[in-house]
């Protein structure tokens, strides 16, 4: 028999589901902001300002993962005599993948709106 979930368990399950839902979306959001090169903090700022809040502990490791997958490229630069910063930008392969993903996103958006009853058929 299934035991009744406590409020804490329900919250933790909700957090997990939310994390899963956001995972793919965050990747696309990050790519969208890296058509121009940016360093970590400026990227976080620009995402925050547009309403896509993302925790540092998620964002920075995600950048490295996307780079290891060949979608981003990075180098250390010193701009305006500040300390060295790592700048990220979409690679050529990343741009191709991004264009395809944007199309998928649009199609998914239409379908999901219908499924969720957010838009009339």
């Amino acid at each position: 028999m299934r035991h009744m979930a406590t409020n804490e368990e329900k919250e933790s399950l909700y957090d997990k589901l939310l994390l899963e839902l956001r995972r793919g979306v965050l990747m696309l959001a990050v790519l969208s902001q890296l058509q121009e090169e940016q360093y970590g903090y400026s990227l976080k700022q620009s995402l925050d300002e547009q309403g896509m809040e993302i925790n540092e502990g998620t964002l920075y490791p995600l950048l490295r993962r996307l780079e290891s997958q060949g979608l981003l490229e990075s180098d250390w630069q010193v701009v305006d005599d500040t300390r060295p910063r790592r700048y990220y930008k979409m690679s050529q392969e990343g741009e191709m993948v991004y264009a395809n993903l944007v199309q998928e996103w649009q199609a998914l958006g239409v379908v999901m709106d219908q499924l969720l009853g957010l838009k009339k058929k």
């Binding site: 360093y39 970590g40 903090y41 700022q45 540092e56 920075y60 300390r83 060295p84 910063r85 790592r86």
Partner: peptide, 16 residues
């Protein structure tokens, strides 16, 4: 490499 990047990110955030 990660340590160097993390330090730079922390300093940026803190400064801002």
């Amino acid at each position: 490499d990660i340590e160097m990047e993390l330090r730079s990110l922390l300093l940026d955030t803190l400064e801002e």
